[in-house]
């Protein structure tokens, strides 16, 4: 077990804990992004190995890293950016409506 894999899982649990306790909408959005980032880190690290080469440079095929996960994770990052921007837009509108972005205060308002 490599240290980065352990770290990846640790950050996943940390961000889920953060989602369970954060009282502020912005913090929830940040923890969502951390969760996503840690999953991306984990995936890219799992396919990596020692002395691996970048797949676009010429060289031996067996020494190259698998390019598919990178393509997938770029897509995930793009989706995550769109989700985050939409969430932030919604929280701005909510602040204009209610004057607060605290979960508890928001849920008490009608």
């Amino acid at each position: 077990m490599e240290i980065t894999i352990v770290l990846g899982f640790f950050i996943i649990f940390l961000s889920i804990y953060g989602l369970c306790v954060s009282k502020n909408i912005i913090k929830s959005i940040i923890f969502l992004n951390i969760l996503q980032g840690s999953i991306i880190l984990l995936f890219l690290d799992l396919v990596n190995f020692k002395n691996a080469k970048v797949p676009i440079l010429p060289g031996e095929i067996n020494m190259m890293v698998d390019p598919l996960p990178q393509a997938l994770m770029i897509t995930t990052i793009v989706i995550g950016a769109s989700v985050t921007s939409l969430l932030l837009m919604m929280s701005i509108k909510l602040f204009h409506h209610y004057g607060t972005i605290n979960w508890k205060e928001l849920m008490e308002t009608e």
Binding site: L19, L32, V83, L87, M90, L94, H97, Y98, M107
Partner: peptide
């Protein structure tokens, strides 16, 4: 306000 709250909750929870 009500639909914004619902939409935020929906998107955030489904993304998780």
């Amino acid at each position: 306000g009500f639909s914004l709250k619902a939409g935020l909750y929906y998107l955030l929870f489904n993304s998780v």
